[in-house]
Design a protein around this nucleic acid. Structure first.
Length: 558
RNA sequence: GCGCCCGUAGCUCAGUUGGAUAGAGCAUCUGCCUUCUAAGCAGAGGGUCGACCGUUCGAGUCGGUCCGGGCGCGCCA
């Protein structure tokens, strides 16, 4: 309904502009109807007069007045005229549109009684979108940084799905290569250590203590005797075994933070096919491959990279780029219309080359989208907690979830723009008080549930609901906040920024708490009660839907 | 040196293709629990938007130069 209305308004505005300025007939204006930052400017606002003013050589304010006049005339013959309360022109030249009471009532009833029909704009149209995220090397437990990537990826996926996209969440497992060999060696060293033999973990090895457990586990299952430094086979088996155990751990960590992947894509399996060789051949045919210094190079500069990249080392081994190009070719073959990669900031230098590769494979510029999630740093009461992966001195994602819980962890990870560093204050996250924005929102939901429960017990029958009863400023503010939901979700979807939703939900919760304190829902006046019950049901549905898109629960009592 | 992110209230941050009086939360201060959850509400104070130029009807937002902070620049993955 909201979409129908805004579409209609845009058409009418365009007609109005043509009427105002006969000269601009061929110029099509991209009219934007945005949510004003303050509700006293109405429900929708447009700055179109600023664009038209220079053309008709009049002030923005006068232009706005002229457009408004035309718009009002056009509206008379529109079926949607009853949905508009007023159109106002304000100071510099904004045109503000306010929904009618009737329209708001229709929306409110819809949200309260059949939220599934209060549709989000179907901007996705079932387009296949793949979101690849986390894809952490299986060399250790997930870090806080991975946690943020996981939660953002998951929330973006939920939000896109809600907007009509067909999403696939995917994890690329880097289960072969030098790092995996180093991992095997490190576990081998731990095994030797456990047997009291000589051992050393090399510079590029992994020193995390979690490997000791894996070593113990391995010895328990396969016995001691098999170990000596010469056993290369054992080392291989050990790598495979370790990767599997670590991946199990990673899957569990993701599960614990509410993230489930649709596809686990193994690099090793990809390597077993001819995919990598084939894709290199394909690039060769396009004359994008050459040899230099004994290595094979990909001419990524053709597509905007600042230097060409090695894909086969002089040793004959692939660099990481080779399987990754093959992986992206695989994504293309799977007919996704868009692929979103979510990476940590340490990978941003990698974007031009993978972009070059994807374009070399012949898909359009906007096929691949890379989102860099800035780091999340942990604080405890203002003190920074430093971390180092290799040395294994860090707080893992698992420990964090254990300390603050899934809901808080997820919400905190989503609270900031992905391009901003995130300060995660453990002390704040653990507080069960109003400082904690998660509880603030969940508390609103729980309060509503409690009132609804009481209403069920106390009042048997409510009179017919008249939503015009909701006439106080706070009630109207709450209604206005509720109807912005589709717009908030859409902003989050298009910008791939779930934090829009966290901000929006806070606003709704605030409007509710404020309403709650100035009005009793269960009033002696049962007509008022009936209307307010409808209002809080609608609020509950919006809070629930929004929290759900973030993967945060909506408790019925707290 | 090059590239990316950031610099807005004491702290953590919003500010949607440039737009209306620069906003929240925390912290500080003042009020509010005999009535549906006080994990709450109402209100107050707090700003040279890092600096300087420029673009224009209009700049926190765009461009340039500089200052400050974080990260990345492998035949690692």
């Amino acid at each position: 309904m909201l979409k129908t209305l805004s579409k209609e308004l845009k058409t009418l505005l365009n007609k109005a502009i043509v009427a105002v300025s006969s000269s601009s007939k061929d110029k099509k204006f991209d009219i934007e109807l945005s949510l004003p930052k303050d509700k006293r400017f109405g429900n929708l606002s447009t700055n179109i007069a600023f664009q038209v003013a220079p053309i008709i050589k009049d002030s923005p304010f006068n232009t706005a007045e002229k457009i408004k006049k035309e718009l009002l005339n056009l509206l008379i013959s529109s079926k949607k005229r009853h949905w508009i309360e007023s159109i106002n022109v304000l100071k510099p030249g904004f045109i503000n549109i306010t929904y009618s009471r009737k329209f708001l009532n229709i929306l409110l009833k819809l949200i309260a009684d059949s939220p599934s029909k209060f549709k989000l704009h179907n901007i996705g149209r079932k387009k296949k979108v793949q979101i690849e995220f986390v894809s952490a090397n299986p060399t250790g437990p997930l870090s806080i940084a991975h946690g943020r990537q996981a939660v953002v990826g998951d929330a973006v996926s939920r939000i896109l799905k809600a907007c009509g996209y067909d999403t696939t969440k995917e994890y690329f497992i880097n289960d072969e290569g030098n790092q995996i060999d180093a991992l095997g060696k490190s576990v081998m060293a731990r095994c030797l250590e456990l047997e009291g033999k000589d051992f050393n973990i090399s510079e590029d090895g992994y020193q995390g203590e979690y490997l000791i457990d894996i070593a113990k586990d391995f010895i328990k299952r396969f016995g001691k005797a098999s170990f000596s430094k010469e056993h290369l086979n054992i080392k291989k088996i050990l790598s495979v075994y370790t990767v599997k155990l670590i991946m199990d751990g990673i899957k569990k960590d993701l599960d614990d933070i509410g993230v489930s992947m649709d596809v686990w894509f193994s690099q090793k399996k990809l390597s077993r096919t001819d995919a990598i060789d084939n894709v290199i051949k394909k690039l060769k045919r396009k004359k994008l491959i050459y040899e230099k210094d004994g290595a094979v190079w990909f001419k990524s500069t053709t597509y905007g990279d600042d230097k060409d990249r090695v894909i086969v080392k002089s040793t004959g081994e692939y660099t990481y780029l080779a399987p990754d190009i093959a992986y992206h070719e695989n994504k293309i073959k799977r007919k996704f219309s868009k692929v979103i990669n979510i990476w940590g900031p340490d990978h941003h230098g990698y974007i031009p080359r993978i972009n070059a590769a994807v374009r070399a494979l012949g898909v359009s510029d906007d096929f691949l989208e890379v989102i860099i999630i800035q780091l999340a740093t942990l604080y405890k009461g203002g003190k920074h907690i430093s971390m180092s992966t290799r040395k294994g001195q860090y707080i893992t994602l698992r420990q964090l979830i254990h300390e603050v819980g899934l809901d808080v962890a997820r919400f905190f990870f989503l609270m900031r723009k992905t391009s901003s560093h995130l300060d995660f204050d453990l002390a704040l996250a653990k507080k069960k008080s109003m400082d904690n924005p998660v509880y603030y929102i969940q508390y609103a939901h729980a309060r509503i549930c409690s009132i609804l429960q009481k209403q069920k017990e106390d009042i048997k029958r409510l009179p017919r609901c008249d939503l015009n009863q909701l006439n106080d400023a706070r009630e109207r503010a709450l209604i206005n906040a509720l109807v912005d939901y589709p717009s908030a979700v859409e902003s989050a979807a298009l910008s791939r920024e779930p934090y829009f939703l966290t901000v929006y939900l806070r606003k709704v919760a605030e409007a509710f708490h404020s309403f709650y304190h100035s009005h009793r829902v269960l009033d002696d006046d049962l007509t008022k009660t009936a209307a307010r019950i409808k209002l809080i049901k609608a609020t509950k549905n919006i809070l629930h839907a929004g929290l759900n898109l973030l993967g945060v629960s909506s408790p019925t009592n707290m």
